[in-house]
Structure formats: structure tokens, C-alpha cells
Nucleic acid binder design. Structure first.
Lengths: 335, 335
DNA sequence: CTGAAAGCGCTAACAG
DNA sequence: CTGTTAGCGCTTTCAG
């Protein structure tokens, strides 16, 4: 069916090796035969068989990208960044959508290593403490870069944002806007959520504000979680007058809840999110947020991975923390 | 480095073939040796080498998913649907993000066929009339399914929505809301945009409404395009009192423009989009839209592809058109 | 039930 | 500059 080197070699009366070398522009081949070979390849629309090539070179030019949720625009942005940085070098990206399930993640990572991907970029859904996946990954020798979520006990490459700083920036901004009772809708038990929570507390402490436990409520990753959490906060008295939300989808849900309760954002309740998803500007109330350079996270991770792949000996793990950046829109602006 | 069948065979003093058969549960192997082999595999954490396996079986269990824009939540949703349907069968998905560039698309599709993916799902960014990509795809014998965008002259499998119906539904809804001067912000020259435009015109004709050419303006795929297009419409006189937008991001941009101009949605200008992206409900004004079952498109495409892959002889191309569904929210509700 | 032989399409290493 | 040999890790085929 498909044209093979063998066919071209036979056609041209040369050896298979000559064809192989011509294709890859080896120097020890005459320009003339090279052209002859290349022309014939074009005529027959020859496509090298990457499977066969990988078999011997031990390079697949495949990179696995393991994400918890493609629908969350943060991860879609990361994926775009990864692709943008990796495609020019000839890599293809195998995406695995784990839907936040650690089991699925483990299975898929195994499948990817079985496929002999050259490297992995992982935003892990593993529960803290379950290190077996990473141990076996370390053992496999396949380089990988964690993104977004740090895993305690795993000394691996990492690219993410300074989550504690993010929390501080968001909270201090709310304070600066005159908020007196600042609540936080926290995310699930992943490092990003924990860091942001720490930042929230740290900022309050610094200003000598007493931390009220009931002002921190659990959300989930998405907008419905934010909606529900906000309903809880609205029942409190005294009611918070500002809320720092774990991420933008959560914040969007929170805004919805506030408006439906007949209150005003930001006048009665100021809201800030995190992530600067691309539609933040289009929400009910244009959403203040802390940008975490989503696409850049993808690009830096890709860069780091690509270095690891090219290195003969595994370089020491590197951790890259990007600086978050405050973006003020209407949802928190009071002065 | 990695454990091979050979190692296990040597360990156990059996032949390589015995190991191979045990792994794949061939019947002609004693239960006892099978267990012995499997146990040893577990002990050594053996992972079959898919490259080597693919080399001989000619099956990679890799499916290529070619999309114009991962950041557009419609495509992210499609991808999620594809993954959900394909992962249980052991497929992995290689995503190629073409960023709407036909060149990139062609290159990537070639890379994917070179990788010997078992099949492809493509939302193509090819210009109408350029069929060479599909001709060579047909020639390659690799099954593929087009999604979202039909390509004239390509008789291939397809899964998408009835775009003309979509346009009709949206436009008739605006008419039913009492709109008298209905404009349309159209998308780029792809089949979906053309179909929706046709539907818009058809609906107006049916009601005997004269079609004003200046009421159809070109947008792009995204919100900035919608914003710009809306600014144009606002300059017209008489000004439209309702706008059907090619998709939800465009509609979101359009709403922004209207509100910034100090007008009200839907009172002064009613707006409806298409696609029902998951954050539509959270926009400035909750967005009326026409749902196109994004995830379902992915699932159906995956299903169709998987049938084609399993078939010994290529089945005749099948076209699946899903029915759009009106979703009314505030942005168009007048009564 | 077990295994030996052959080969998938290609490239690394070396010889002419 | 060109070609030969060997083999990547596995499965298919067929003989014991």
C-alpha cells in the first residue's frame, strides 16, 4: 500500500541505505543522487514511516500532555502554549484528559510511557501522598514536567505561578479597595488552592485583620461550585463585603449568585478571581482577576521539557515560578 | 533500560513466544504458565512496547484530532467528547491545533499519517476549493471524519449540525420576539458560517421581510470580531433592533459593544448567538443561543471513526447532521 | 500446549 | 560516496 524506501531504491537501482541517507540529508551522498532520490520520493508521495524510524532511533517525537480538564480554559490555554512551542521542533502532542480522576491519570500516563513518548507535561490530579505514579515515572527515565500543581514529595521539574503571592495580591487589592470583611472561596485540595488560601490568610494577618474561619468556604473548580459557595457566604452575618475566589470560573459563578440575590457587584460585594481566562472581560460584571500567564506556563514547560529530552544525562530538576499580575476590572473597583 | 519480553522469557526459562502469548491471553497456553508469566511481568513492571507492537500489527491505537482552535470552547468540548468515547477502547488522541492556518493543517495531517495514526477527526481550516489534502488522505487509506465544517467536493464522513436550520431557528426566534430589523454578524468563509447565513436569509424571506445587505456584516471567529462588527451595525440607520451572531464568542463581543454604546440588551437590541458555550449563562447579559451539541459531535465522530477503523473494507461515507436546539436566555427575551 | 523462523520499515556502524 | 550487515521488540505463521 504505502510506498517504502525499498520501493524507491529498487526503482532507482540504488541501495536502501542510499535512499535513507538522501532523505535525511547525510553529507556522504552525492548531490546528484540525492536529488534523484528526492524527486522520486516526491513523485511517489513517499512518507517516512515514523513507527519504524522510532523503533531504531528510540525517539518518537511524541510528547504527552496530561490535563485534568480541557474545558477549563486555563488548561486549553496551557495546551495552546505547549503546542505553539513544540510543533516547530517537530513534536506532536498526545493529550490525555483525565477529568480530575487520579485513576484515569495513572492509566493514561502508563499508556503514554508504553507508547514511548519522549516526555510528559502533567497537571496532576493525584491526591497528595500518592507518589507511586511519579516513582514509576522516575524509574522509567522519561523526562517530565509538572505544571500548575506541585506534588509534595516529588522532586521534579515544575512550572507554575507563585500561588501564595497570587493570594496576597488579590487580597491586598480588596483591602485597598476598602473592603472590611473579606471572604475566600477556596478550591479543592491541590497545591494551587492551598497556596492561594495561604496568601489570603497571610495578607489578612499582615494587616492585622482577624481571620474568621466561616469566611473561608470550599468551592469546586467550576462555576457551579462558585455559585453554591457564594450562597453560603450570603447567609452569614455580618455578610462579607468582598470575596477572593480560587479561580475565574468560580468567581463567575459567585457573581451570578450575588446578582441573583439582588445585590450589586462591586458596590455591595467586590469580587476578584484568578487566571484571567479570556472571557473574563465579557462576564456579567467584567471580572477583576490575577493573571497567571497561562499560555506562558505551557511554553516554559515545553521549553524545559525539550531541554531535558535533548540532554544526554538528566539535568537536575528545575522549578520555575512565574509572577502573578493583578488585573483590575469592574468587579472589584470601588474608588 | 526497560524490561522486554526477552528478559522475562530468560528469567522464566521459557521462549519469547510463550511470554507474548501469555500477555495477550492466547488460548493455546496453559493457565499455569500464563500466571507465571503475568506474575513476573508485574514484578518487573513490564510495559509492552507499543512501537514494536504497532510495527507488526499495523495498528497504533492513535487517533489524530485536528482542530482550528483549542481555545474556542466549542472545540475543547468536541475534544472532550472524542476523548470520552475513544479512551475506553484504548485509543490515545494526538491533538493538532492548527490555529486556523491551512498550511499548518496540511503539514500536521501529513505528520499524523506518517505516524500511522489509525484514523483522523478533522475540523478543517482548508479554504474551499483546495482539495489536495483530502485527495491524498483518501489515497492513504486512513479513515477520517470531518466535523463541524463540510468541505465542498469532499465525499467523506461528516458529523455536524444542520447549520441552515440553526440560522432559521435563531432568526425566527428574533422575529417571534417582535424584532423588525434583524441583522447578522457572519463568520468567515467556512461551511458553518455559510449555512447559518443561508438560514438567516431563508427565515427572513419566509416572513416576507426584505433583506438589507448592509445588515449582514463580517465578523471573525472570536469576540473581538463580534465587537468590531457590532460597532459597524450601530452606525447604521435605521439601526437594527436584533442581531443573530455566527457564534457565542462573537455574540459576547457584540453585547459588549452594545452596552458600551449605552444601549440595552435585549430592550433596544436583542442578541442571539450559536454554540451554547458553557459560560454563555455567565455573560454580561445571559446569552440566548442555539445549542449544537458540541460534545455529542465529538462522540458521534469518534463512534463513526471507530467503525471505519474496525471495518475490513471502507464503508461508504456517512453524514450525520444533528439538530440544533434553541436556548432562550435574557439577551433576546422581550416578552 | 510450546517454540523456531521470518520479518514489519527503518537506521547505526562499519566496510568497500 | 555507496552498500552490507545487523538489529530495534514484537507478532504472525507454522512446525513440533
Amino acid at each position: 500500500m504505502a510506498v517504502r524506501m525499498k520501493d524507491i531504491a529498487r526503482d532507482l537501482g540504488v541501495s536502501l541505505m542510499t535512499v535513507s541517507k538522501a532523505l535525511r540529508s547525510h553529507t556522504d551522498i552525492s548531490e546528484e543522487t540525492r536529488q534523484r532520490v528526492l524527486r522520486r520520493m516526491r513523485e511517489l508521495n513517499y512518507q517516512p514511516d515514523w513507527i519504524a524510524r522510532s523503533m531504531v532511533t528510540r525517539r518518537t517525537y511524541l510528547v504527552g500532555l496530561v490535563l485534568p480538564d480541557l474545558m477549563h480554559s486555563f488548561f486549553a490555554e496551557v495546551a495552546t502554549g505547549v503546542a505553539r512551542r513544540l510543533q516547530p521542533s517537530g513534536y506532536q502532542i498526545v493529550i490525555s484528559n483525565t477529568e480530575e480522576d487520579p485513576e484515569t491519570e495513572s492509566r493514561n500516563v502508563e499508556a503514554l510511557t508504553s507508547r514511548k513518548v519522549d516526555g510528559l507535561i502533567i497537571a496532576s490530579a493525584q491526591r497528595q501522598g500518592n507518589l507511586s505514579l511519579f516513582r514509576s515515572l522516575d524509574h522509567s527515565g522519561i523526562p517530565y514536567v509538572l505544571i500548575d500543581r506541585l506534588i509534595a514529595g516529588v522532586d521534579a521539574n515544575y512550572v507554575g505561578v507563585k500561588d501564595e503571592d497570587l493570594g496576597i495580591i488579590a487580597t491586598e487589592h480588596l483591602i485597598a479597595q476598602g473592603a472590611k470583611r473579606i471572604a475566600h472561596i477556596r478550591g479543592p485540595a491541590v497545591s494551587t488552592a492551598k497556596g492561594r488560601l495561604r496568601g489570603y490568610r497571610r495578607a489578612l494577618e499582615r494587616r492585622g485583620v482577624k481571620i474568621r474561619p466561616e469566611y473561608t468556604v470550599a468551592g469546586q473548580f467550576g462555576d457551579s461550585g462558585g455559585y453554591g459557595a457564594m450562597l453560603q457566604l450570603l447567609k452569614l452575618s455580618p455578610r462579607p463585603d468582598a470575596v477572593f475566589c480560587y479561580n475565574d470560573p468560580v468567581a463567575a459563578g459567585a457573581i451570578k449568585a450575588v446578582l441573583e440575590a439582588g445585590m450589586k457587584v462591586p458596590e455591595e460585594i467586590a469580587i476578584i478571581g484568578a487566571g484571567n481566562v479570556h472571557y473574563s472581560d465579557l462576564l456579567r460584571v467584567p471580572l477583576s482577576t490575577v493573571d497567571q500567564s497561562s499560555a506562558l506556563i505551557g511554553e516554559r514547560a515545553a521549553e524545559l521539557l525539550s531541554q531535558c529530552i535533548d540532554a544526554k544525562t538528566p539535568p537536575p530538576p528545575q522549578r520555575i515560578f512565574l509572577s502573578p499580575r493583578l488585573i483590575v476590572r469592574d468587579s472589584s473597583r470601588r474608588q
